[in-house]
Design a protein around this nucleic acid. Structure first.
Length: 742
DNA sequence: GTTCTAGAAC
DNA sequence: GTTCTAGAAC
């Protein structure tokens, strides 16, 4: 009877026989197993015995058998036991687990810390009992981790605690040291990372990430991390004018000086962007300077617009910014049908003002939330809650100078009543000390940001218009000038921008020049989704510009064809590092690739292979990989052709390394297979890939930092992992590579 | 993408 | 004190 109670007793204050615990520590050298035991034992009321294989042999290295014997004997004496040895493999643990019984619960505590941390601790310790010190430590840790098998309850454990960080370790220590003689801990797995998606291939099976718990944490805290002051941001953008709706008097094109609406109410309204003045209201940006910038940016985009139009809207007839802009635009002779000002409520342009604008810009706050009293409040209110929801899916916040374009859900009143398909949120620079991101009157910075804001806004609008043209539904309404011609183009070219079909060399690849823009607008564009694809900063445009205007970059371009441009990476991460850049408009990145691009992918691969042949001819020791970054930093689809020495002063940080040496790098051969079988490539852009520890691309050993890794890879002669040697992913002089074009 | 730099790690 | 990382700014 007593036995029965004992078996089921947990922390019930039952003073009968104590349930013993045997904790099997699992962790590499340097993971902190001994420290863990010591800290628990130092302040635990429960009697513990630490069985350490390093010390049990009295100077000589101990054996597993000795440990087992000691453990059994300690348990017999009624002591709880720590098994302080690596125990990384199931087999290493199994004998100990068998010591469990109705009187002894077997636990595992997994010290799953980053290899680099274990290595550096092992290296540092000289007098450690395990005598594992100096340069050998890294090798030993690496070797052990390669065999790591994380424990599982079905091995016979009652409880498993996973620790991935020092914080986890500390809380496990606290848990065990507070465990009194009669206390018990809940059964089960604790702290286990969600099935690690990143660990996919054989060669990566022991790769582990230490930061997961921290990440989860910070994600959960994302919102409260934002300064609370932000909630009041832009509280009243444009509030003074927005409240008094004067739209009744507003007549279309109230601005004879700049332009008047000609055919705006017809069934074939051209694509139109309505935008408020950014930053001049609550953000107190100088109207004079803002007007200057607006006109300047409008002028810059004039010839990219095709038949599309820009309309600057303000609620008030007496708007200073509107009249300034009007005057400056007139002075510059800006085409008044493509750009004009308009007085009215931006949320009622069609119903109240008779002006159909398919896209409107919002002077947003940085949190992209409704609120304030100005344009932002009006637009969120008119659009209904679906706008907030759709916005949230695109972005959580915005930095000054940037935009985020949101497609309005069909349930939005703004869509149904006003025919607005998209809202582009814009955050301008702030010169109001009472608002976030205050620039302290720094107009150098402010003007730059305001230019960025308008530039991004207009660019986003153009992208939307292009997408709309793509959509079969949109064609008739929006083509305006030459529908049949346009339709023919989009069918014939498979969204591809071929020079030959346009006859005008070079220039026509861009939406540059009025005569080409109508075509450009309905050409191409593989982005079937209407969602604005990622926003590309100005620095991310370089490849795009090179692809579209190779003749302007003759100094860096190695080869040009209709399909691709070849150039050396300006910051090569290896001895040989080429970029094969696609010359297709709208093909920004791997995510934009679809089945129709298969011939292009094969061409890109073939061009890469051709260059590799040449390089290997010059230096037979070179080994190459061809592949794409899952989430590139530079706009315009580009294939990396990179030698596997990674011998380059430009390789400076973890991201550089991991972008070529984790799953983030998608081998061209795999991409081609995936696109041909599934119509799209698998993208692995989990940001945790970028923070993975440094591992050699040959022997997979881990290294605590980049300089150490570099030293290692300069010497490592191990063969490449089989996953790379297989399937033609690696290309070397012995040549068993794949090519896709005959 | 790089550069710059604060501060963490050594 | 020096090295290294990582985040912000560009």
């Amino acid at each position: 009877m007593d036995m029965d109670i004992d078996e089921n007793s947990t922390a019930k204050g039952n003073e009968r026989r104590t349930k013993l615990i045997m904790v099997i520590l699992v962790g590499a050298p340097g993971s902190g197993k001994s420290t863990f035991c010591e800290l628990v034992m130092a302040s635990s009321s429960r009697p513990w015995v630490r069985i350490c294989q390093d010390t049990i042999g009295n100077g000589k290295s101990g054996t597993k058998a000795q440990c087992l014997k000691s453990a059994a004997s300690a348990l017999n004496d009624g002591k709880s036991v720590f098994v302080d040895r690596c125990n990384l493999e199931i087999e290493q643990r199994s004998e100990f687990v068998k010591l469990g019984s109705s009187l002894v619960d077997v636990h595992a505590v997994v010290l799953d810390l980053p290899a680099q941390l274990c290595i550096s601790r092992s290296v540092k310790r000289t007098g450690h009992e395990g005598n594992l010190s100096g340069g050998k430590a890294a090798a030993v840790v690496n070797k052990m981790l390669q065999k790591k098998e994380l424990p599982n309850l079905n091995e016979g454990f009652k409880r498993i605690t996973f620790c991935h960080s020092e914080t986890d370790v500390q809380s496990a220590i606290d848990t065990y040291k507070s465990l009194g003689l009669h206390d018990a801990l809940p059964d089960g797995c604790f702290g286990q990372k969600n099935a690690d998606k990143k660990v996919q291939l054989g060669i990566m099976r022991f790769l582990k990430k230490a930061e997961n718990p921290a990440k989860t944490c910070s994600n959960a805290n994302t919102n409260k991390d934002f300064p609370s002051s932000q909630t009041t941001q832009e509280k009243k953008e444009s509030s003074c004018t927005m409240l008094s709706n004067v739209n009744k008097e507003s007549e279309k094109g109230e601005n004879p000086g700049v332009g008047s609406l000609e055919n705006n109410i017809s069934g074939s309204d051209p694509p139109t962007l309505a935008f408020p003045s950014i930053s001049t209201s609550d953000f107190k940006f100088s109207h004079e300077k803002a007007a200057e910038i607006i006109v300047e940016m409008v002028e810059e985009f004039m010839d990219k617009l095709g038949n599309a139009r820009l309309v600057m809207v303000d609620l008030s007839h007496g708007s200073k910014i509107l009249s300034l802009v009007k005057a400056k635009a007139a002075k510059k002779n800006i085409c008044s049908t493509k750009f004009f000002t308009f007085v009215g409520d931006i949320t009622k342009l069609k119903s109240d003002g008779g002006l159909h604008c398919n896209v409107i810009a919002n002077a947003a706050n940085w949190r992209l939330k409704p609120g304030g009293g100005g344009v932002n409040a009006a637009i969120f209110s008119a659009a209904g809650p679906s706008l907030e929801e759709a916005t949230k899916q695109q972005a959580k916040s915005l930095r000054p100078g940037n935009v985020v374009a949101v497609q309005l859900p069909s349930t939005s009143p703004l869509f149904n009543r006003e025919g607005v398909t998209h809202v582009i949120h814009v955050l301008g620079p702030n010169m109001n000390p009472q608002r976030p991101n205050y620039l302290n009157n720094d107009y150098d910075e402010g003007c730059k940001l305001l230019r960025d804001a308008y530039s991004s806004l207009f660019q986003a609008f153009i992208s939307i218009v292009k997408d709309e043209f793509k959509s079969a539904k949109g064609i008739d309404e929006r083509l305006g000038s030459a529908p049949s011609e346009s339709r023919k183009h989009s069918e014939d070219t498979h969204h591809k921008f071929k020079r030959a079909e346009l006859q005008i060399p070079e220039r026509s690849k861009k939406w540059k020049g009025t005569q080409e823009s109508a075509e450009a607008l309905n050409q191409n564009n593989n982005k079937i989704s209407h969602k604005m694809s990622k926003h590309w900063g100005s620095w991310a445009q370089a490849l795009y510009n090179t692809a579209m205007y190779p003749e302007r970059h003759a100094n860096i371009v190695l080869e040009t064809s209709d399909d691709v441009v070849v150039l050396n990476d300006i910051y090569p991460k290896a001895r040989k590092h080429l970029l094969i850049v696609a010359r297709y408009e709208g093909l920004d990145q791997l995510a934009d690739v679809h089945k129709e691009h298969l011939p292009l992918l094969k061409t890109m691969h073939a061009v890469g292979m051709k260059w590799i042949d040449k390089f290997i001819h010059d230096d037979a020791s070179l080994v190459f990989r061809l592949g794409y970054h899952s989430a590139p930093s530079m706009r315009q689809l580009h294939l990396h052709v990179i030698s596997q020495d990674f011998d380059s002063s430009h390789l400076k940080n973890k991201k550089h390394w991991n972008s070529f040496n984790t799953d983030f790098f998608r081998d061209s051969v795999d991409v081609i297979d995936e696109v041909s079988s599934h119509g799209k490539a698998i993208i692995k852009d989990d940001e945790s890939l970028m923070s993975m520890e440094f591992r050699c691309n040959r022997c997979r050993s881990a290294h605590p930092n980049l300089p150490k890794l570099k030293t290692h890879i300069s010497k490592c002669q191990s063969p490449f992992p089989s996953t790379l040697l297989e399937g033609g992913r690696l290309v070397n002089a012995s040549g068993n590579s794949r090519n896709f074009l005959s």
